[in-house]
């Protein structure tokens, strides 16, 4: 469906993208993960045809984005980082304009727009001025814009950025719904978001692909070396020494200690040793009479993922 080969892009001396290649199969939801400034938006802009690459090729549905731009662009709905909204138009006016741009036949327009409006849940603001809408609604109008013309491929650049958790949830739901019929690329710098929505992840850093993996493999890779946070009351040294004896615990470091003797420690565990280390820790603490105030697994930060991936 989408084939990206050895993509390079430089702005003057700055090389934003340094050779990215991957493929997206039909019906797949691909996560595009990377820290800010990793080249996500640049790559997506290139795929959508907005920017030119320095070298490499993007083939969409068999059409090269350079050689057959119109054919290729017909297959794509694109939501850029900053939704391309005309603030002086109402939602309906704007979407009708996009329909015109995407050459949606006049007789299908009404049906399609109604469908999109209800799907993105903006029917009630259809006659309001885009400039007066909240950020969440603007984002949804941006998504609606990408959906106009019923493209087979959706490219969504940080669709949930700046939204409140409720809105994020709704948009995730919407994307899962869309995923049934469309090929989707979503970029994000939040791992959990990608995990929630995607089948496969491309992780890029410094303009390069750091890893391409399915979510399950990635989880395995990540959970294979995981962090736990433990908050307890007791003598810190004793606890650490005691926990060290548990098989699978690789290292322990102290995070916070406050005056009332409550400590927070970070435990790095290695699940590959077999068995659930967490149960063992619990029993160990219970056995020694150290009350556990909080015990949870720490989500790895993206940086840690990169570290773990690049160092592996």
């Amino acid at each position: 469906m989408i084939e990206i080969k050895d993509l390079h892009k430089s702005y003057g001396d700055k090389h934003a993208v340094r050779g990215i290649s991957f493929k997206v199969e039909k019906g797949e939801v691909l996560g595009f993960l990377g820290p800010n400034g990793a080249g996500k938006s640049t790559t997506m802009n290139i795929i959508s045809g907005y920017l030119s690459m320095t070298s490499g090729s993007v083939i969409i549905n068999g059409h090269d984005i350079l050689d057959e731009p119109e054919e290729a662009k017909k297959c794509i709905g694109y939501l850029p980082e900053l939704p391309p909204l005309y603030l002086d138009m109402t939602v309906l006016e704007y979407l009708t304009f996009v329909c015109d741009l995407k050459k949606v036949p006049k007789d299908q327009r009404k049906v399609q727009l109604a469908k999109i409006l209800s799907m993105v849940k903006i029917t009630d603001v259809a006659d309001r001025l885009i400039g007066n809408l909240s950020k969440g609604y603007k984002q949804r109008v941006g998504i609606a814009q990408a959906l106009v013309g019923d493209p087979e491929i959706l490219i969504l650049d940080e669709p949930t950025v700046g939204l409140d958790p409720n809105q994020i949830l709704e948009i995730r739901k919407l994307i899962s719904k869309l995923a049934k019929t469309k090929t989707i690329i979503i970029s994000s710098h939040i791992l959990s978001e990608i995990q929630a929505m995607c089948d496969r992840v491309v992780i890029i850093n410094h303009g390069k692909v750091a890893a391409i993996d399915t979510i399950t493999d990635l989880s395995a890779r990540l959970t294979g070396n995981s962090k736990l946070l433990l908050c307890f009351k007791g003598a810190i040294k004793d606890v650490i020494n005691s926990l060290r004896t548990i098989p699978g615990v690789s290292s322990i470091s102290e995070r916070v200690t406050n005056e009332s003797g409550i400590h927070e420690i970070e435990i790095i565990v290695d699940y590959s040793a077999g068995g659930d280390v967490r149960a063992n820790i619990f029993y160990n603490m219970a056995k020694n009479g150290w009350p556990i105030l909080e015990f949870r697994s720490l989500d790895p930060t993206l940086e840690e993922v990169f570290l773990s991936i690049t160092s592996a």
Partner: peptide, 14 residues
């Protein structure tokens, strides 16, 4: 300035 030009580049409009 508003980034709406992206519409012209990413839709099949000449």
């Amino acid at each position: 300035r508003r980034g709406t030009e992206i519409l012209f580049y990413t839709t099949p409009v000449n």
